[in-house]
């Protein structure tokens, strides 16, 4: 349980960092990375709670929610049409 408590704290902290990063231009990329790591922790705790039969803490749930919001909003800032850029980028290498 100790490891899940640590992961829940890390997930919450990373979620908050990712939300803060939205407001600082290019730091959205840092926000995406933080949200991804936090999300993986959050999902691990949720799945472990299903398999081992315990109730995930409020901190873990808050971390999961914040990371989903953080990932969504940070991704909006820097995502582009991959179908266009991608083809241009790779065409020269094929």
């Amino acid at each position: 349980m100790e490891q899940y408590s640590n992961k829940a704290t890390a997930s919450l902290v990373l979620g908050i960092i990712s939300l803060v990063c939205i407001w600082f231009g290019y730091s959205a990329l840092v926000g995406v990375v933080c949200a991804i790591v936090g999300l993986v922790f959050g999902i691990q705790i949720r799945k472990a709670s299903q398999e081992e039969g315990f109730t995930p803490s409020g901190m873990a749930t808050a971390g999961l929610v914040l990371n989903i919001i953080g990932l969504s909003l940070c991704a909006v800032a820097f995502i582009a049409c991959v179908a266009c850029v991608g083809c241009i980028s790779t065409a020269a290498y094929l």
């Binding site: 290019y26 990329l29 991959v82 850029v85 980028s89």
Partner: peptide
């Protein structure tokens, strides 16, 4: 950060 991504 400004959208560089590869579809594949």
């Amino acid at each position: 950060t400004t959208g560089g991504a590869v579809f594949y």
